[in-house]
Design a protein around this nucleic acid. Structure first.
Length: 151
DNA sequence: GCCAACGTTGGC
DNA sequence: GCCAACGTTGGC
């Protein structure tokens, strides 16, 4: 089993939105490196840290679980969606998504600032300079520590 | 709004 | 294959 961190802008899709709907496709990934991991490495039952980016307090706000492995991201074919890509052919899809299910919302969200201040998190991909990937694997000990801080 | 750090595109 | 121009991400 692999642990992950998925980023989302809360004014677009937040942990509260996920809690309301329960299960949701993680669509709109339009970066090849992220796509490859989403398509090939994100597996059923994997645990995901839900991260709020580009907001007042960036940080991890909860946990969700992968409940469906990669399938074509149909929003790419839909010109009215938030992220259409006319270059993705339904017969040979370029982009993929997975389904995630809400698991928990932290009582104490773990802010990016807080994580930067703790030496335990040094080396975590989230804190690496220039990291712009919207999803990446997280070491188990980092995952466990975020949970301990958040709950 | 600014800007660093990427990633992508397209001419050559 | 190189690289300039442009676009995006995301913290601050």
């Amino acid at each position: 089993m692999t642990y992950w961190l998925f980023k989302s802008e809360p004014n677009c899709f937040s942990i509260d939105d996920l809690e309301k709907v329960g299960t949701e496709p993680w669509d709109g990934i339009r970066n090849y490196q992220a796509r490859n991991m989403l398509r090939d490495d994100v597996k059923m039952g994997d645990k995901v840290l839900f991260y709020h980016s580009s907001c007042d307090v960036p940080g991890v706000v909860g946990v969700c679980e992968v409940v469906r492995e990669s399938y074509p991201d149909s929003t790419a074919f839909d010109p009215t969606s938030d992220h259409p890509d006319p270059k993705s052919d339904p017969d040979n899809p370029r982009w993929f998504m997975v389904d995630v299910k809400f698991e928990s919302k932290f009582k104490n969200p773990v802010s990016l600032k807080q994580m930067k201040e703790m030496s335990e998190f040094s080396g975590m991909r989230l804190l690496q300079k220039g990291n712009r990937l919207s999803l990446f694997p997280v070491d188990k000990h980092h995952f466990d520590l975020v949970l301990a801080l958040g709950n």
